[in-house]
Amino acid sequence: MSVEVAVPKGYTRVFSKPRALSDAGFTYCPGCHHGIITRLVAEAIDELGILERTVGIAPVGCAVFLDRFFNCDFVQAAHGRACAVATGIKRARPDLVVFTYQGDGDLAAIGTAETVHAANRGENITVIFVNNGIYGMTGGEMAPTTLPGQRTTTTPAGREPRLHGYPLKISEMLAQLDGPAYITRQAVFDHPHIVKAKRAILKAFRNQLDGKGFSLVEILSTCPTNWRMSPAEAGRWVAEEVTEVFPLGDLKDVG
């Protein structure tokens, strides 16, 4: 539990935990970028003043405890089904602000159909897509987004595209559709990129408030534990290697 710290005399608080977050500590591994992304979503909810009308969809995977971290209503979804569950909620109560928070296994493997079709319908929801190229929670298996050559527990000699396929660029796929309003790929490996990612998340929520339709922010994340890297090394790997395969930037923006 965090303790309310009295503001020291002569100082002003300029950064603290967003209101949308509860006091529960994150269950992510040390240095995992999930924590940054989770906080950015909370900050966006705060800044838009929508906490009391927001419903989040927690996925299966490392963010399965998401409902504990947030102070808004939450629904826990089956692996891959978040976009379908979000559709059900949003269609039942269009006044709610509905967001999903999904990993790459969830969104781009087992939930590919639900993702593609929610996007294609232009479903007025916000999707936060955390791409760390691996199944973190289950022990570091190959994900659809694993880089060629990358070692995982199910590609011990490295991902061999002829055997295991290529990294799935689902955001590029979605950007080809007529339905989505906004598809972007961001990263959070340093301060400037975090600032940009935050702007993208804000936009993805604002689009929903404006009724613009399906908005997805893919965020390249890390998995220091399963990548067997220090948090700092993992961040550098995203900056240098992952962005080569998954370039950053907006893929679709109807404005």
Binding site: T12, V14, F15, S16, F26, Y28, R39
Partner: peptide, 22 residues
């Protein structure tokens, strides 16, 4: 400057600035 807080994955840092500089 709060860069540290912005990169912290556990929202463990609170940042204060001296009032004249704010």
């Amino acid at each position: 400057c709060a860069v540290c807080a912005n990169v912290c994955p556990d929202v463990a840092l609170e940042i204060y600035r001296e009032e004249s500089s704010v």
